[in-house]
Design a protein around this nucleic acid. Structure first.
Lengths: 210, 210
DNA sequence: TCAACTATCTTTAGTAC
DNA sequence: AGTACTAAAGATAGTTG
């Protein structure tokens, strides 16, 4: 329709109705109410994006989050349990009747996860936190020399090539931190394969809970 | 700022360099290459959003996805394991009739994590990465100009040596994290094997320690 | 293969109901 | 707590190194 608001011949063309989206500092939102609202909005946004990812690209996604107040939410496609069931509910997955899906790549991953999960099942509750503590300590061991200033580099005397290299490194580090689990899982998978590659069969059942 | 393209009195005002972002149908992307690219880009986008969610609102997030080709990726904050472990713990604690969840060790760890705010560190890292990017851009775009104005505050007194030192530290940190991951894996595997070697698996150690 | 660019699309902060 | 709106901020499709 030509009811274009800008065509409104009354003046007042620039009395903006709202401020629109404003930039916000990337830090904890103080106001509790605001924080909860933002959490809700952004959580929905992530759900949507996760869903789009699967729709566009296939694969599977699982997303879990605990709200600031500690409430758990999760989103999964095809379902949260399909994606993380192995890690959460080992017993249930072993009951699953596997037909020929075992040859599907994704099942290989799941098999690997199951193996990895076994130890988690036994290990998680009382050992896991120690490891996390250690991990923290290694992060804390971050130079007595103010970790937060660490990244304020200088370009003085650095060539463009060096800068690029450095950036690549930063991104690599970033990826490594973010995906450390992936790394661990891949390793498990390799070990698993090494232990079993003398067996020519595709190992239909992982005999996990024997 | 008179370099406004629309003000360019010569014609040729609209030779657009790119089409910009185009709308796409929300359905499986046929082209394999395209699909993989999109997956990668969007996965990164979700990581970023997940991280922002935690930073802004607190709480915790875990995100797992399997690429169209079946590769696993995950992002977690504070860590994917913490998020999942906590959920697992919730189940367990219910079953175990834990009197007070908040006194459970793992909760203390989580509390500690929040205090240490690893998350904030991550963000610092991330935003500094962006800063590096911008620096490069300013270098590339105006090599003869004085790009240092913006950053002069932190440039003062930093030598190339110090920079290299920082980088070494980063590499160390990176190695540290990797080690912890490996260590944890080995440990888990040992436990796993110990629990099962009386059943079927004789080859206990996965060549972890040497 | 992967990074960079940019025009355009999408999300969302702030606001009001 | 939930919906709706606007406009600025942010993400990204298509393209080029």
């Amino acid at each position: 329709m030509e009811a274009n608001p800008t065509t409104n011949h009354n003046q007042k063309p620039n009395k903006k109705q709202t401020k629109g989206k404003q930039k916000i500092e990337m830090k904890m939102i103080r106001d509790e109410n605001d924080r909860l609202t933002t959490f809700s909005k952004r959580k929905s946004g992530i759900y949507k994006k996760a869903n789009e990812l699967v729709t566009l690209c296939g694969g599977e996604v699982g997303f879990i989050t605990f709200s600031p107040s500690g409430k758990p939410f999760s989103y999964g496609n095809p379902s949260i349990d399909s994606v993380i069931a192995e890690r959460l509910l080992l017993d249930q997955t072993t009951k699953l009747t596997m037909t020929d899906v075992t040859t599907h790549p994704i099942m290989e991953v799941h098999r690997e996860m199951r193996i990895n999960n076994l130890n988690q099942k036994y290990n998680n509750l009382y050992s896991h936190m120690e490891v996390e503590k250690e991990r923290q300590q290694s992060l804390q061991k971050m130079p007595t020399e103010a970790p937060d200033e660490l990244w304020e580099g200088s370009i003085e005397g650095l060539s463009l090539e060096e800068l690029k290299q450095r950036q690549r490194f930063l991104e690599e580090l970033h990826a490594n931190i973010s995906n450390h689990v992936k790394e661990r899982m891949s390793r498990s998978w390799n070990i698993f394969n090494n232990k079993n590659n003398n067996i020519s069969t595709p190992a239909a059942t992982p005999r996990s809970s024997s």
